[in-house]
Amino acid sequence: MTAGAAATADERLLRQGRARRLLGRPELGAVVGAAAVFVFFSVVAETFLQASSLSTVMYASSTIGIMAVPVALLMIGGEFDLSTGVMVTSSALVSSMFSYQMTANVWVGVGVSLLVTLAIGFFNGFMLTRTKLPSFIITLGTFLMLTGLNLGFTKLVSGTVSTKTIGDMEGFPSARAVFASHVTVGGVDLQVTILWWLGLVAVATWILLRTRVGNWIFAVGGNADAARAVGVPVNRTKIGLYMAVAFCAWISGQHLLMSYDVVQSGEGVGNEFLYIIAAVIGGCLMTGGYGSAIGSAVGAFIFGMTSKGIVYAQWNPDWFKFFLGAMLLLATLLNAWVRKRAEANS
């Protein structure tokens, strides 16, 4: 690229700045994809547009969405976390087993679980910044270790692969109210996780776009060396992101526990990919430095619509995973295509 060509290109950019800014939003492709999936299931499934169906879709979206928010932030910060799926289960197991074994108030277990889960997140971030190994390797290690710990520890303590019920213990009703209750809004039954999800999206968007930490997250993912050179605490930012992932894993874990009052120790494996897929569909670049929390919410919504839409369309559920994969691939391709068009326009 010669100096002259760059200067000319620059002039053109300045004139089309506004149109480009609108089209260049990271979540645009996902919004178009979500609209397409929505229209598709509205046509093929009669019951899809009923309020109760949409409430179910929103619930399915929220269970993925709560984790997709911090995973998106982490990806903007340039890192992966493969341990998220089983971390949710670990968090639920710790909470449940601590309360049961110590015969303590459920809230004590919930608090201990928060500390343990945050410690796991800190471990991921600390190992990453200390060893400089790729996050893929570090968190793959954590994923395997947690998978083993979940099963081994649960069997050691409970004698079976699931925890003992804590449904009759002190503090359970109030914990359930916070993590797994329903609210009725305008005759529609909504799970409380939807509120957690939307709240997290709002907070994450605020942090990303309007705080110093948000500026740092974009910078460490976009160019960590440049960020370090101007004094951004790169390591602290990354460790913080892993702890944010852990915090949301704690919320998801408590929801998992309070919904049923027992936890299966083998759950959660594979969910880490759903969170990453939601973030990528939502416009996060795999290479970091670009993306949005709102995009991750749209990505999670696409997942929710697809997983429940197949049920409402009364298709053979054996094919569920195939349709899910195809939908996600199509949405991602559409997203990439829209973004390419947006960039070509500028």
Binding site: N215, F218, G222, A226, G289, Y290
Partner: peptide
């Protein structure tokens, strides 16, 4: 940081 707007780069850190 190439992907970030000019004003965010200017004040980074």
């Amino acid at each position: 940081v190439s992907l970030m707007p000019v004003w965010r780069n200017f004040f980074l850190g």
